[in-house]
Design a protein around this nucleic acid. Structure first.
Lengths: 217, 217, 217, 217
DNA sequence: TATGAATGAGGTTTCATTCAT
DNA sequence: TATGAATGAAACCTCATTCAT
């Protein structure tokens, strides 16, 4: 479930690799937030991580590896946070709680998400799929959440409908971060969550009706 | 309505400045699409524009100026396209047509929008507001579109509700481009438009109801 | 007759390219003589050539290009020197003069030849053939010199015999430079030339005899 | 007869030093053959030798030490091979056998010889004399071989003549390796040996005659 | 106004060597 | 004695910008 792209390290001690990479990622994220990937130098990353440039390169092969590690770790963290989301029950409560929880995580990690959003395109053709896969899996969680809810209400949606609702939730979570200048002046995260949730539920209700009445109006 | 940030040019002939800058922008957009802002060199831009590096610098002061010009011109183009949107009538038709038209433009200009999306953060603190202002104005168009529609139906929404609906429309248009790998496999632009419009209308209906019943359910 | 491997230059003015490259080569040869190719930095070369590192890279693409240009120019210089060698007459005099002249050039250019000798292996697989070709052509000159001489004496050598004699001459010229520590203590270039020429002529005589008597003794 | 330059080792056990250094040399030669001294890293050498970089540096002080050890060991091996050459008898047979044997060794060890040839100049001023001395001693063997042969034939050569013949033999042996691309396409080692031997004998005969007739012709 | 050669700061990466364990 | 993680000087090369023509 968690296939990673191999990033070569010269150092053999796996535990150490993990530790150093975490230091590296923490430093890199801070810098990427401030200046973006391209304007951040490897030397700065090494310094922020607390070791020398030589040491940095014992744990990665290229600067782009760092970007990959950063993106990967951000997704891992988000996923870890969402791990206890209740995908099965399918109640209204589990749906709204799931969305609220996701939005909260997006609020807390908005800097990280922003980084990923803007820099992911700098990933090599090689690394991109691994990151996209994680996105895909997260969207799939929302699909399931919706699917169960709808089933519980004894409805049947087309896959394309569920998929779109899930995509919308996913992007609306990220929006909160990457359009903060527009949204966070007007709403608290709570308000934002409430409104978007309302819209989501209306959307579902609408799809239910259009299914019953047999389509277009 | 169309305040521009001054970009210094050594050349005095305004007509010429305009012409050269357009050549520049066209070349730059092509390159930015392929390789992003940072991986594109000024020399490449000059070449793509059809003049020498020296000439390029007669019309701008820094590389970042080019990015600003590009972003600015993309927004101008989008705005120009949406100019004849009917914001006043407030019918269901004018609403759905407006959204559909916007989505179509986003479909046609998805590369440009993607560029802007990913590179705007490289704009200087100085230039950013000018670009954000244009975004803001576009969102305002959708707000008006919705506002009129709702008024026509003799409803009264809170500003925060309208604002959110407008933001959603705006982002859903961009999504089509920046999440193309996820969306364009599953939907045609027509299907996508139809589904999102359905959700939008359900959302509006929902807000109407909650206004009438006086709030939370 | 003088196919060159293209070395890319950003600068377009061919005359300038030629001029700057010559400055570059002169500087590089001096440095390579002292410290070898690998221990010489591109910055040192730029400095020795009298321009900045940036300018250096306007005229080449990689450090290895410099090595190629150096090797190529050394061979060109040697060849230019040997241009008026009389390959046709086939007299004893033209043979001995030819060899003597070659040895003299090798004496004068011993540093350059030494450089080429020791560094040529650092040329890329790509560039090597171009350099070897020039060597090959020089050996061919000696083959012709010998061939004509032998013909004049109404003899017929096997190609393998002529080839070996030519290779020996060629290497003995280079030896004078790359084994200087052993040879130049004991001989002046004149003595060295005289002795090697004597051996060459004896060798030819010997091959003539073995041809007449029909081979092995 | 076999003075070595001290190469410092931290490890005291002489037997171990010898063993480790041999492993090191074997690994290094393989690598130097492929990529040359400068392009081979100390880490690669350590790995090829079967121990860690830390251990490597217990047995040498600098990378250049390895080059010295390699050169030294190659010469030792050549010398060992030539040990049973019959320098005393002075017959035609012992002369031709001696040369043939040397050429055979050069054929077998051509890679090693090539390495030495191209990298020896990277030895420090400090180490070079030790290596040159060994070369010198080998040339001296050929001098003796020729000297005895000439004496047997009741001739008296000048030292400069003998020295040159010996240098020629020595270099012609190495040529076989370092000009392999030119020679090994045309000759087998047997043919090459036969031809060069013929030339050598003619040279000797020529010197005998010129001695008898008293000089230049 | 147009050109393009020149500049050099600064980027990423390598690798010989050290030293604590 | 053996290990291998850590170091940082220094290598190669790029590219935004300038300026003489």
């Amino acid at each position: 479930m968690d296939e990673k792209r191999e990033v070569h390290a010269s150092v053999k001690d796996e535990r150490l690799v993990e530790k150093r990479r975490n230091e590296m990622i923490r430093g890199a994220v801070t810098l990427f937030k401030q200046k973006g990937f391209h304007r951040t130098t490897t030397r700065e990353i090494a310094k922020a991580a607390g070791f020398s440039i030589g040491t940095l390169y014992e744990y990665i092969r290229t600067k782009e590896d760092i970007l990959y590690l950063v993106c990967d770790s951000i997704y891992d963290e988000v996923r870890l946070e969402l791990e206890d989301m209740d995908l099965e029950r399918g109640t209204l409560e589990s749906l709204t709680l799931g969305v609220a929880h996701y939005f909260q995580v997006m609020d807390r990690m908005q800097d990280e998400v922003l980084v990923m959003y803007q820099e992911a395109k700098s990933l090599s053709k090689d690394a991109l799929p691994y990151v996209l896969k994680k996105e895909f899996e997260m969207v799939a969680m929302f699909e399931k959440l919706i699917q169960r809810y709808v089933e519980n209400r004894e409805h049947q949606f087309q896959e394309s409908q569920i998929h779109l609702l899930a995509q919308n939730i996913f992007v609306q979570g990220q929006m909160w971060g990457f359009r903060r200048w527009a949204l966070q002046k007007k709403y608290s995260i709570k308000e934002y969550t409430k409104l978007q949730t309302e819209l989501l539920l209306e959307g579902i209700r609408g799809f239910e009706n259009s299914a019953r009445t047999g389509g277009d109006r």
